[in-house]
Each structure stands twice: as structure tokens, then as C-alpha cells.
């Protein structure tokens, strides 16, 4: 009993030490964002903001050319549209792989698994050229439209989940005269909610955090997303750590809130994506 207690305490101590290292950057970011310049450049550095001030946030949000509220809205627009595209297309494709029988299915599934490992940088330049010819540069189309063509990881997660649903459901539905579309929308989708939630949070994270896409496709600053706006802020006010950490905190906050709400789905999805063999 006593030995068990020692062991338990030991585990907590180690995990707490590592956990402190994990939280330190976030705490440092938030603390700096509430500090006056004098305490930001104090030596030795101070951990807690004293005196506490909102001025960095006021500065960040009112700086000319840095429309952070607009960046926020732009990020939200792109993320929600791309997320809808990812979910809609990946569900339909996953259904084809999990529930329908067609020649070439298994071979194509291997292709799908392979493309998950394919480095994106090879296709980056030709795809950029394609979008340039379509006149899509400096619009949100390059960030949103490709999402409507399914994403291998999400197709994989949804397919694995649909495979676990009993076949008898399909047969019952077919006996009632339901076609594939009815089967997918009325039976598969409601039952796949956990997997859909996982895909939704993953897609949200991927598009909210996307950096390379907005970096190469967006030119005018009023169209910037948060990630790229933050990068511009850094380029222009590189050493003003107070306002910059306020801007970073504003960028990180939505993701942290989403993580706290949907933690279960993040962790489930991560675990699932590793368990393919």
C-alpha cells in the first residue's frame, strides 16, 4: 500500500515537471501580453504581469494596417468553408470505400494510404501555377476549393469507423427500398457522429493553423487570415513583444477553447490515425 503511494506520487511528480515545461511557453505568452514595457524588459525576467495592463491588446487591435478583428473574421470564413468541404466530400468517399463494392476499390484504397505520406511540396508549384491561370490568386478559392475533393486522413478515419457499423443495417435499409444516398444520409451519418466530430476538429485545426496556403496565395492585407496577419505583424513590429504576444494570444485562444471543449475527439482522432496497419 505504502509502496503504491510512493509510486503514484513519483509518477505525478515526473508528469508535473514535464507538464510545467509544456505549459511554460503558453504561460509566458499570456503573461507577456499583460505586461507593461518596463516589466517585459526587466532583468531578471518577471513571471507574473505586475502591474497588470490591457494596453498591449488595445495597441494590437488599433494598430493601423493590422485589422486583427478582420483577420479573425477571414480565418473563420476560410476555416468554416473548408471544414464543410472536407466533411461533405470525405464522408461520401469514405462511404464508397466502406460500404460499396466496386472494381478497383481496394487498389485505390492503397493509393489513398500512400498519398497520406506524399510530401505536399512537390505539387505546390504546379498547383500555384494552376490557380494563377484561373485568376484565383489573392482570393480564398485556393484555400477552400481543394477541401471539397476529400482529404485522405479524414476519408481513412471515417471509413474505419463506418466499417465497424453492422452490415445488417444496410440490408434492412435496402429491403425497405432505400438507395445508397438514403443509406448514407439517414443511417450512416447519424451513427458516425463520433468520427464526424473527430474529422471536424481536425479539419478546423488544419485550416485555422494553415500557414503556407495563405502565405503564397493571399497578397492584400485586408484578406489576411490570423496566421499570416501575425506573420506580418512580426515583420513590421519585430521587437515589440508586448503587442506581439497579445496578437499571438488572440490567434491561439480559439484553438485552445476548441481543444478544451472537444479534447476527447482530438485525442481519439490522433490515436486512430496511428493505429492503421
Amino acid at each position: 500500500m505504502k509502496l503504491k503511494l510512493i509510486r503514484q506520487t513519483g509518477i505525478h511528480v515526473i508528469l508535473a515537471a514535464g507538464g510545467a515545461l509544456m505549459l511554460l511557453p503558453v504561460i509566458w505568452m499570456i503573461a507577456t501580453s499583460f505586461k507593461e514595457p518596463e516589466s517585459i524588459y526587466a532583468f531578471p525576467p518577471e513571471w507574473l504581469p505586475h502591474p497588470f495592463t490591457w494596453s498591449n491588446y488595445v495597441e494590437t487591435l488599433t494598430r493601423p494596417g493590422m485589422a486583427f478583428l478582420d483577420f479573425f473574421r477571414n480565418s473563420m470564413t476560410v476555416t468554416v468553408l473548408a471544414m464543410i468541404g472536407n466533411i461533405a466530400s470525405s464522408t461520401v468517399v469514405a462511404f464508397a470505400f466502406a460500404r460499396l463494392r466496386w472494381r478497383g476499390r481496394d487498389a485505390l484504397f492503397v493509393v489513398l494510404l500512400t498519398t497520406m505520406m506524399l510530401p505536399q511540396h512537390v505539387t505546390m508549384i504546379p498547383v500555384f501555377v494552376l490557380f494563377k491561370y484561373l485568376g484565383w490568386i489573392d482570393t480564398y478559392k485556393p484555400l477552400v476549393v481543394p477541401a471539397f475533393f476529400g482529404a485522405p486522413l479524414y476519408i481513412f478515419i471515417l471509413r474505419q469507423f463506418m466499417l465497424t457499423l453492422p452490415r445488417s443495417l444496410d440490408e434492412a435499409a435496402r429491403l425497405d427500398g432505400a438507395g445508397n444516398f438514403t443509406l448514407l444520409t439517414r443511417i450512416m451519418l447519424p451513427l458516425s457522429k463520433p468520427a464526424l466530430a473527430t474529422v471536424a476538429v481536425f479539419a478546423f485545426r488544419a485550416h485555422w493553423n494553415d500557414f503556407m496556403g495563405p502565405l503564397i496565395y493571399l497578397n492584400s492585407s485586408e484578406k489576411f487570415t490570423l496566421a499570416i496577419g501575425l506573420h506580418m505583424f512580426h515583420g513590421q513590429y519585430g521587437t515589440e513583444w508586448g503587442p506581439m504576444m497579445a496578437a499571438a494570444t488572440l490567434t491561439v485562444l480559439p484553438m485552445v477553447i476548441l481543444f478544451l471543449i472537444a479534447q476527447r475527439y482530438f485525442i481519439q482522432g490522433m490515436a486512430m490515425s496511428g493505429l492503421k496497419e
Partner: peptide
Amino acid sequence: RAVYYLPTVVPGVAVALVWQWLFNTDFGA
């Protein structure tokens, strides 16, 4: 488990900025 996973949801640009500030020679954490 949540604490260790949390950093992976932070956007890359924000990660880079925060670490640049953490690594600051004179005033970094």
C-alpha cells in the same frame, strides 16, 4: 494527457513567435 497534447493545437506561427521570445538572450524565459 491533455496538458501534453495542448501544444500540438497551437498554430505554427504563434509557436514560432512565442519560442523566439522564450529564446531571447536577455529577457527570455
